[in-house]
Design a protein around this nucleic acid. Structure first.
Length: 519
DNA sequence: GTAGGGTTAG
């Protein structure tokens, strides 16, 4: 073209983005400016998208300033792409600034902001914003938004909110959407309900690699190594090509179920059989797998043989350090913690683990000197914690004395009981054992314990066998759609629940359904 | 000619 115009330039940029070449798109943008062709809103939405793909904050900011200069800062699409770009560049505050500055928003801009929160470990903010969205008149979440919301529920372990989102998915007919279904599989697994993950997974008509991978990873994290590998084999039988993440799941499964030889075989077959070249994250799994079973020298050799950048190696050497502590290998622990500290990666954790390794070996002088060094350099380790949400209250657990947390004495006695049962099943004490839990049994307890008033409120009239009945909310209005959704959700994940009085749902008073109020 | 969603190791 002798004189390409703004549309031809933008089309070309969009084309490069489509084939995964965002850098080329940026070069075209520069060429466009050099040719004195003025960019418009279409151009900026495209070029901002290129920055998102590259997670290039500095270029993104420059483009943002151009957006202001060219006066397209009020454009809806441009703003949504800016929110997305700031989110992907881990700059949530600027994403929010753009969002707040918008005169008019649509479901895409809301989704971009919710996703930005979710992708930056701010699940709580994501859910809060989702609630605000639902409070707007005439608003309705679509499958993009629901996928993000389910993801936020997963990261927070919010089972009840996740189930309500699931009901919304069913109500709106997004159940067979591959992306949404993957998010649900992942959410249920992360919320401790692998059985539900399986049920959702089995309803996907033609699952792609990602739902398969979600299921493999979920089962692996649950300690169901063999189950996880069975799904992997099924996937191969169906000629679905595994990707790098699938192999992380497979190796994780082997590692956490003591299947070391299988794991090594999978590592070696990855490239040859499946064309996936192992990278640092796979070697980290294998180092963990060897380390967990006490094959520290092999793990050490493997870690040393891999050339890594500091940020990539943090997990690799951190893994080796943990395994060294587990088996009291001061020699390897010293090398691993030295690597971490010198690379300025996870310094506080490295100090603490090293100190614990010395303590385990009874080398108290070294323990004191490390603690002194930490004080001297002002290194502080934020304690790690885990939590579980029961009836809208979060119970937080820190490592160490469980009796200090809320209802700690009950927790401690439950732990003693679990230990007793584990010993009955042949578990050998100490931190080196592998624990596997009977999922079905646990899931049932969870249903009774966690399935609190929220779901009963939303769906009403539910009774559980064994004589336990959840409180019934009177005058609940529920539209036919919600009711259908509820029946379906019962079939999928709540087979133990029985709807007692179906007919009462078929009329609802004074107009609209109350489902909106239950977010 | 333009914007949004899912799986990742210690």
């Amino acid at each position: 073209m002798r004189e390409p115009n703004v549309i031809s330039f933008t089309s070309l940029m969009a084309g490069f983005i489509k084939v995964g070449r965002p850098k080329s798109a940026l070069l075209i943008f520069c060429k466009m400016l050099e040719s004195w062709v003025l960019p418009n809103a279409f151009t900026f939405a495209t070029v901002v998208n290129a920055c998102s793909m590259l997670a290039d904050l500095r270029t993104g900011q420059k483009i943002h300033s151009h957006v202001e200069m060219f006066g397209v800062q009020c454009n809806l699409v441009v703003c949504s792409s800016l929110i997305d770009m700031y989110g992907k560049c881990n700059n949530v505050d600027d994403a929010r600034r753009v969002f707040d500055g918008m005169d008019y928003r649509n479901v895409v801009s809301w989704t971009s902001m919710i996703t930005a929160y979710g992708q930056n470990a701010l699940g709580e903010c994501a859910l809060q914003l989702f609630r605000e969205f639902n409070g707007l008149p005439l608003s309705s979440p679509n499958h993009f938004m629901l996928a993000s919301v389910i993801n936020a529920c997963a990261s927070l372990g919010r089972l009840v909110s996740g189930k309500v989102a699931h009901a919304a998915v069913i109500r709106r007919g997004h159940e067979s959407n591959d992306v949404v279904a993957s998010a649900l599989v992942d959410m249920y697994a992360k919320c401790g309900c692998i059985g539900y993950s399986d049920k959702v997974f089995r309803r996907i008509p033609d699952p792609s690699v990602i739902p398969y991978t979600s299921m493999i990873v979920g089962a692996a994290k649950y300690g169901l190594g063999k189950f996880s590998l069975d799904i992997f084999k099924e996937m191969l039988d169906r000629r679905i090509k595994p990707n790098d993440v699938t192999f992380v799941g497979v190796l994780h499964a082997c590692s956490h179920s003591g299947l070391v030889d299988d794991g090594l075989e999978y590592l070696h077959s990855m490239h040859k059989k499946h064309g996936v070249v192992p990278d640092t994250k796979h070697y980290t799994c294998v180092v963990d797998m060897l380390g967990r079973t006490g094959r520290l020298d092999e793990a050490h050799q493997l870690a040393k043989s891999i050339q890594v950048e500091p940020d990539q190696g943090a997990l690799l050497w951190g893994t080796l350090l943990s395994a060294s502590r587990l088996y009291g290998r001061v020699d390897i622990a010293v090398e691993a913690s030295k690597w971490l500290i010198e690379s300025n990666q996870q310094v506080a954790a490295a100090y603490v683990t090293m100190s614990n390794t010395y303590a385990m070996a009874g080398k108290w002088e070294n323990v004191h000197s490390i603690r002194y060094e930490m004080k001297h350099y002002g290194v502080y380790k934020e304690p790690g914690c885990s939590w579980v949400e029961i009836r809208d209250s979060a119970y937080v657990f820190y490592a160490g004395d469980v009796s200090l947390c809320a209802r700690g004495s009950e927790v401690a006695s439950l732990l003693r009981e679990l230990e007793r049962r584990m010993k009955e099943r042949g578990y050998v004490g100490g931190s080196r054992g592998l624990v596997s839990i009977d999922v079905e049994e646990e899931a049932k307890e969870e249903i009774v314990g966690l399935h609190s008033e929220r779901l009963a409120l939303a769906f009403g009239l539910i009774s559980i066998p064994k004589g336990v009945t959840i409180r019934v909310m009177k005058n609940l209005r529920m539209c036919r759609d919600c009711h259908e959704a509820f029946k379906l959700i019962s079939e999928i994940v709540e087979r133990d629940f029985v709807v007692r009085d179906v007919n009462r749902f078929h009329h609802f008073e004074n107009g609209s359904c109350t489902c909106r109020d239950f977010w």
